[in-house]
Write a protein that binds this DNA or RNA. Structure first.
Lengths: 356, 356
DNA sequence: AGCCATATTGCATACGAATGCAAAAATGCT
DNA sequence: AGCATTTTTGCATTCGTATGCAATATGGCT
């Protein structure tokens, strides 16, 4: 039982005095693996308990040169994929005894404010989970010797670590799926055009369709934004040669597109129009939408991210590392089914071409 | 233009040496309002630029006894309301030159780990945005002299500040709305039963219905969780005297309930069943759902929260303060309309009884 | 008991920036 | 110019903890 008042200003010296030992002894008591006898440790613990002492992480950071803080930069949380990531990150980082300093908001131009903060707090690592961030920031940090991991994103010059999924393969898989479903007129609603994720998904899609002889793809720009995706959908669906298959660059937009198709254009899904998304995020699974979507293995992605970071922090070696994971095409009700290739695994329907 | 490499270990003394001044001068240059001549400031700035110096926030915190960090505790981010809050919090805190340390995950029992972290990092304030947190934590912090604000939640003993909305009135308003819509059999799907938010919303609902003579309310327990809400919905909708009006304690659950009603029970909404939610969160506005929902003024709530915190931090006075804001019943398509009372304001439909 | 190896302990210092105080410089005024 | 006043500067100390080093205590072994 801890008694007494918990004044915030209890210091190790006070505890030391109370326990009749030196300040060093107190420090060692709270430093795992330090040389301290069980007897003194106990005395110290007792005194600490009585006074409500907790080591001051700030002071500790100052001398160890380790803040045990990881900065997480996430431009927007509207897309549920990112809150999910955040939650999982929190879980794993806590397990590693790290804290999570969150930066949100669109830091469009040069992301200097964030960079400043990051530098000022001497964070031990940075996770950039945002498709829209300037690649400037990441390189600056890398230069400054701070481990950085790009989450769900890469840069051309691979000087900084990243965790991604096989977006290109994903786009291609979607193309195959839609082709197998007998679709004829293909459309695409993009994310932010310059983002690596968007480029790769689109490239795979184009590739896959091209191999089947389809080279004319109707493209709308969604910028990962609901409203823009809706506008793009309106544009695409108003065309005389309206697509009968639409790949939307992520589920966040796909949901919005689906509402437009159904309620503004009166289309039946998937009879009149098939929609495929990406991420396999919460709302995609909701019955009203049931979006067929390429999944991204969120937990494994987060795990890899934390893993890379911890490795770089403990080794001091900042060598760019790239983890590329795979996903599955989760088959639901938003797209016509191909005759073969849809299999059931653990109660989930997945598209695995070649396995009838 | 900043040149050169940005080594993380640039200290004020190094800058001082380079600029040919004392370390104090450097410190003063970066301390707003400190006594420093324009000339030296310039010299210092130049040197700082060259070396890529940024003041070490950790060291600064140690001596100023201010970390400029606010801890935000949020149990779960699955409900989009909270990511939205988080984003807005990030925005405002940055504006006040504060950082946001995020704690997520269910810290069910005694929330000691969080408390420990919070204390160790000497955060300047804490925002508890989570209906399910033990009230223990908040009081411990208050005792320790750290400003705490409960967000969207209160405790019985009002020793700690809070920002909430008039949940009771909200519940009552919903009752009135449903009554005016001619409903006869009322149901409720609760949040976490012990949460103040849930209790108040339910109390208002019960009150409103009771005044019209309806005292028999079918109640299911949702615990703010999708799966549990679905189960509760199944239970309620299977009853022989199936409700024709359902108030679900928040939109996050209401969306799930709606899918169950429509796709598992084949009910038409709102013809067979009216559903009203709470929060007016993103998905509630999506066309597929169009949930009629009591809004919570998120921005103003966050503003009030930050405001209280800043006040307490700068004054040093930790006096519990309670801000209670109001919301509106946003009328959409998930519930039958009453004959009168629905008005249009700024393109939004709102229920304002008495204004036909 | 006596000796050596090992485990604990305390001392003193360092981390990087802020600040009270007194010295030095700049300014104003006659 | 000479003096008083104000501004600027540097010195030295402080914040709370970690840690190398030397001193001391403990334990094992013969």
């Amino acid at each position: 039982m801890d008694s007494g008042v918990k004044k915030p200003g209890v210091t190790s010296s006070e505890v030391a005095r109370r326990a009749g030992v030196s300040q060093s002894a107190v420090s060692r008591t709270f430093t795992p693996g330090a040389s301290i006898s069980p007897k003194t440790r106990e005395k110290v613990m007792a005194a600490a308990q009585e006074l409500g002492y907790r080591p001051n992480a700030i002071a500790r950071s100052l001398i160890t040169n380790r803040s045990r803080i990881i900065a997480v930069v996430m431009a927007y949380l509207e897309n549920l994929f990112y809150p999910d990531v955040l939650e999982e990150l929190g879980r794993l980082l806590v397990k590693e005894n790290y804290r999570l300093l969150l930066f949100t908001g669109h830091m469009d131009r040069d992301s200097d404010p964030v960079f400043d903060q990051v530098m000022q707090y001497r964070v031990d690592g940075i996770i950039l989970a945002s498709t829209t961030l300037s690649s400037h920031l990441s390189e600056e940090c890398a230069t400054a010797g701070i481990p950085v991991v790009l989450f769900n994103r890469t840069t051309e010059r691979d000087v900084v670590s990243s965790v991604t999924t096989r977006n290109r393969e994903g786009g291609r898989r979607i193309a195959e799926f839609l082709l197998a479903g007998g679709h004829k007129r293909f459309g695409y609603i993009s994310g932010v055009e310059s983002s690596s994720t968007n480029r790769d998904r689109f490239a795979g899609y184009v590739e896959g369709l091209a191999e089947a002889g389809y080279t004319d793809i109707a493209v709308g720009i969604g910028n990962y934004d609901r409203a823009e995706a809706e506008a793009a959908a309106r544009m695409l669906l108003s065309r005389p040669d309206r697509p009968d298959a639409l790949f939307v660059a992520n589920d966040h937009m796909a949901v919005a597109v689906m509402d437009v198709a159904r309620y503004e254009f009166g289309l039946s899904i998937p009879q009149d129009l098939s929609i495929v998304g990406y991420d396999d995020v919460g709302p995609a699974r909701w019955t009203s939408y049931g979006i067929t979507s390429m999944s991204q293995p969120l937990k494994r992605m987060v795990e890899a991210t934390v893993n890379i970071l911890m490795g770089q922090i403990s080794s001091g070696e900042i060598e760019a590392e790239h983890r590329i994971l795979g996903g599955e095409l989760m088959v639901r009700t938003s797209a016509r089914l191909p005759k073969t290739g849809v299999v059931e695994v653990d109660g989930r329907r997945i598209y695995k071409p070649g396995k009838p």
